[in-house]
Design a binder for these strands. Structure first.
Length: 662
DNA sequence: GATATCCTAAACATCA
DNA sequence: TTGATGTTTAGGATAT
């Protein structure tokens, strides 16, 4: 048996490693793929991209020269831009993956978009005004001044005065190369020597999505500068004749030029208050919140009419608009490519995770699946909008990686299982919600649930209307809910029996139909170390600082908030009566157990009175008054109870009996 | 390192 | 006698 146990440990450990490695590989792979995207995809010509880059470099250089000629001291000397990645707000690919959720995925896509833009507009940032935040400045390391073509042009064009600038460029170039080499060593950039472009994904971590607008502005700024230079007789465009120009003639015919505002026929009433901006947004995708949504514009327009005028005057068909449109098109294309790849990866992941079909085992004892489902729904409804909702069906699964709850990504796949997962099990993982959300996953995947046997047993019992189960029913619940428990029968059944006998919280009751097991919540809560008592900050820190990486930040916040709600409740904080209050150890099995109990026993079981939650018949060794006090420790339920019964004072933390476990 | 918790394994008892 | 159920002990692993 020990051998079996050992092998099991070995078996689960790799699953953990696989999970981690999959995370890593996913992220890393994404980087590689992203990098190759820009190089190999057929929709965006690498030549075009390179030309675009060169053009941008030239423009930046022109602007730089202009500043030099006009005595402007460039605020953006190379050394001011090249910063170490430690300075940036980088996160590791693993971290990024762990926190990845649908909304975050959206942010990631935006990063992709920003990176695309950066590839096109990076160089001009060298001349950026000093007001630019350092966070953005550090991203300007990837420049393409190394282009020999660029240098050659400068050799021809620049006079003696510009030679100094050229030397500066060379220095910049060297610094950039050094930095790229450093990045290569860090594995952040997969660059071949002499390769001009940096893989998009490699830039990902150095790019802040919030700079997207600024980048667009910068694109516009370059164009404006170019126009200004033309006016000042510094037009160098003729020297870049062999580079891709932004002129309309160079734009591919299939490029959907931005619909000209001339054709707008939906001019609305000229004056509208800001509350109607959403309507405007709906009427024109480039107008919203009283602003022009043209990339990099943000011009304020009071109404649609003004916006139309603005659109006609500022964003007419010219070189700049065409270039911006082209860039935007590339952004979209890149996003589409990336989305396709991510979707494909997601599909592969789901296929992998569900490739093992659940065993065709019939369960002849329905165990309140309906209530479980309804509970699941209620919990899901309780999730903040935007939070990832785990799979509710095997047919439409969501990759566990995206799940906010820690079940799969941080626990199961990490191979810790129900065993020795105190952190998540006690403080973070709401069993009910986790099970509800990942119900199908656990039913189908041979993944060990990250809960203790005691927690699972308790949940199984509390899930039933009468809060009691026979041993066999508990068995069935385990096998029904978890594919993992459909094997290793002897092991876990023994463990179940062991837990039932060992823990005082499980009370054996002689019933009509035989012996059933119930849960003594008081005892169950006694098991919990009196943690997270008092300080809301402590609660939040505990929740957020326990290292369950996959736990969505919002989800953590939600949990913390729910806990805070309880802890901040004056009525709850000023309790004083005895036993029931022991239940309010908010720590332990879960801040969760709070949530979990809410769902299991509180609002989700309308037909069940609080008293029913406790032991019902022939509870051995339990004081009669216990039955009344052994209500669920649900935070919400407690809050509700306290609100509805102001006189029912309960002590939350004080006078908690010391550990008398076992 | 001590302690607590949890898991696993196993032996044993009871009962239908 | 057998299997299910229940109790208890022991040891290892992990986290605090």
């Amino acid at each position: 048996m020990m051998v079996e146990s050992a092998t099991e440990t070995i078996r689960t450990t790799p699953s953990n490693q696989n999970g981690v490695s999959s995370l890593s590989s996913q992220s890393d792979g994404g980087g590689r793929e992203g990098g190759s995207n820009g190089d190999t995809n057929g929709e965006i010509s690498p030549v075009d991209l390179l030309h675009l880059q060169q053009q941008q470099a030239l423009q930046a250089a022109r602007q730089f020269i202009l500043q030099q000629a006009t005595g402007l001291n460039s605020p953006s000397m190379p050394h001011t831009h090249i910063t170490t990645y430690k300075d940036s707000q980088m996160i590791t690919p693993q971290q990024m993956q762990q926190i990845l959720s649908p909304p975050q995925l959206q942010a990631l896509l935006q990063q992709q978009q920003a990176l695309m833009l950066q590839q096109v507009t990076h160089t001009h940032t060298l001349t950026r005004a000093p007001h630019k935040s350092p966070h953005t400045e550090h991203k300007m390391i990837f420049v393409w001044f190394s282009s020999s073509h660029f240098s050659h042009l400068f050799q021809q064009q620049l006079g003696n005065k510009q030679l100094a600038f050229q030397q500066q460029l060379i220095q910049m170039q060297q610094l950039q190369q050094q930095h790229i080499l450093n990045l290569q060593r860090q594995g952040l950039v997969n660059l071949q020597p002499g390769q001009g472009a940096v893989p998009i994904q490699s830039l990902q971590q150095a790019m802040c999505p919030t700079d997207l607008q600024q980048l667009w502005k910068d694109v516009a700024g370059i164009q404006s500068t170019e126009e200004a230079m033309k006016h000042e007789g510094l037009d160098l465009t003729t020297n870049s004749s062999n580079t891709t120009s932004y002129s309309a003639s160079k734009v591919s015919p299939q490029i959907p030029h931005h619909p000209l505002p001339n054709g707008q026929n939906s001019v609305h009433t000229p004056k509208r208050d800001s509350s109607n901006h959403e309507e405007h947004t709906a009427s024109h995708p480039l107008y919203g919140h009283g602003e022009c949504k043209w990339p990099g514009c943000e011009a304020l327009c009071e109404d649609m009419g003004q916006f139309i005028k603005h659109l006609n005057s500022e964003h007419a068909l010219d070189d700049r608009s065409t270039a911006q449109c082209r860039v935007q098109m590339q952004v979209v294309q890149q996003l589409e490519i990336q989305l396709a790849k991510e979707s494909e990866r997601l599909q592969a992941m789901m296929t992998h995770l569900h490739m093992r079909p659940s065993e065709p085992k019939s369960f002849n004892q329905p165990l309140n699946l309906a209530s479980s489902v309804s509970l699941s729904k209620r919990e899901s409804e309780g999730f903040p909008e935007g939070l990832p909702h785990p799979p509710t069906s095997a047919a439409t699964p969501i990759t566990p990686m995206r799940q906010g709850p820690s079940v799969i990504s941080s626990s199961s796949l990490h191979g810790v299982g129900p065993i020795r997962r105190r952190n998540s099990d006690k403080f973070c993982t709401p069993i009910a919600s986790e099970l509800a959300q990942n119900c199908e996953f656990y039913k189908n995947a041979d993944v060990r649930p990250p809960f203790t046997y005691a927690s699972l047993i308790r949940h199984a019992i509390l899930e039933t209307p009468d809060r009691q189960l026979t041993l066999n029913e508990i068995y069935n619940w385990f096998t029904r809910m978890f594919a993992y428990f459909r094997r290793n029968t002897a092991t876990w059944k023994n463990a179940v029996r062991h837990n039932l006998s060992l823990h005082k919280c499980f009370v054996r009751v002689e019933n009509v139909k035989g012996a059933v097991w119930t849960v003594d919540e008081v005892e169950y809560q006694k098991r919990r170390p009196p943690k997270m008592t008092g300080s809301p900050t402590l609660v939040k820190n505990m929740i957020s600082g326990l290292g369950f990486g996959s736990l969505n930040a919002s989800y953590q916040a939600a949990l913390a908030e729910s806990s805070l709600g309880l802890l901040n409740s004056p009525t709850l904080m000023n309790n004083s009566t005895g036993a029931s209050l022991n239940m309010l150890h908010v720590g332990h099995d879960d801040v969760s157990s709070t949530v979990e109990q809410v769902n299991s026993n509180g609002s989700c079981s309308p037909g069940l009175s609080p008293q029913q939650y406790g032991h019902q018949v022939h509870v051995k060794e339990e004081p009669a008054e216990m039955e009344e006090d052994s209500r669920p420790v649900s935070l919400m339920a407690s809050v509700t109870q306290n609100l509805s019964m102001p006189g029912d004072e309960r002590d939350m933390d004080e006078e908690l009996p010391t550990e008398e476990l076992e």
